[in-house]
Amino acid sequence: MTSPQGFDRLRKRGDAADSASARSTPTGIAPHRLDPQGRGALFSVTEQPPAPGAVTVTCSDCEQTTAVSPRRLATLALPSVHLPMIRRDHPSWMRCPACGKRTWVKIVITL
């Protein structure tokens, strides 16, 4: 039988610049930032700031930030709980679009 430790060596999604590599650099690397001289060199298009009306969901579990349409947000938020006074960092409990888990997330709507 495969030992559980074997799978434990695999990182979680979104840990591209995981804590180990972040610690090894003087400045640290924000999670899932593309190094322009590494993997980011493949992209000729740079990440654009979100357009007005854009919605992003940041998951407290997988730490991914995902842009979603308002319609998709409505789907993900069924059902949902919102506790902005108690949970300031990730105030909404709903399904994360990145990892698919029901967990606490932060929703940002760009105005």
Partner: peptide, 24 residues
């Protein structure tokens, strides 16, 4: 098998980049 499993995580990071930057 294990190495293929590991590759899926790397691919999904690239997919997330593509979804965010190029092809939502």
């Amino acid at each position: 098998e294990m190495l293929s499993h590991r590759g899926v995580g790397q691919l999904l990071d690239t997919v997330a980049d593509v979804q965010r930057i190029l092809n939502p």
